[in-house]
């Protein structure tokens, strides 16, 4: 006997309905705006995300993995490590259900979270400090699934960042023992 999850609405479905309703109520302008102004380099081939989703991830990654020492050349940035590219490739391999939830969360982050945090522009058009405010507000949201969505994105970004040997010296990690280069991991 297959027990369907449709027997009672899950919290995930309630969130989905809420986000969808908010986007619709935001009017066609949201859908119109969402597809414009997101320009990717021509040589960027995406696997899981639409261009606008990828750019949201890029902006989020720059803030989630922001350096703690301004202008320090020893700290690689999220763009240098192509964290967003890593996340795109990783998400392409994930379960379809999870991919769908993440895309919905990115829509929330881009269009609704700024409004909830008192800003007028979409996330990718905010200043870095304003983006930090938005991320902090989602991180501490009273809605469990929004906090879970943020934590999921955060984990993916950190995976994309700290997977790279160029970050290991920042945290004093000497890296795997096998295939270790003669001069250590760099």
């Amino acid at each position: 006997m297959r027990a369907s999850t449709q027997a009672r609405p899950s919290r995930r479905r309630v969130l989905q309905a809420g986000v969808a309703a908010a986007l619709v109520l935001g009017g066609s302008a949201v859908a119109f705006v969402r597809t414009r102004g997101y320009d990717l380099p021509a040589d960027r081939a995406l696997q899981a995300f639409a261009p606008w989703q990828f750019i949201v991830v890029q902006h989020a990654a720059r803030r989630i993995a922001a350096p703690d020492r301004s202008g320090d050349p020893s700290i690689p940035g999220a763009d240098l490590l192509d964290v967003a590219g890593f996340v795109d490739a990783w998400v392409a391999r994930m379960d379809a259900r999870v991919r769908r939830d993440l895309r919905r969360f990115l829509a929330y982050l881009e269009h609704l979270a700024p409004v909830a945090a008192g800003h007028r522009s979409r996330f990718t058009r905010l200043s870095p400090s304003a983006q930090d405010e938005v991320l902090a507000s989602v991180e501490s949201s009273s809605t469990d699934l929004l906090r879970a969505g943020f934590d999921g994105l955060r984990s993916l970004v950190f995976m994309g960042y700290y997977r790279d040997p160029r970050t290991w010296s920042l945290v004093g990690y000497d890296g795997p023992l096998i295939h270790r280069p003669a001069g250590g991991w760099k």
Binding site: R63, I64, P67, D68, Y162, L170
Partner: peptide
């Protein structure tokens, strides 16, 4: 996240 998290790391 951000700078504070990197300091923690």
């Amino acid at each position: 996240f951000g700078a504070a998290h990197m300091t923690s790391m």
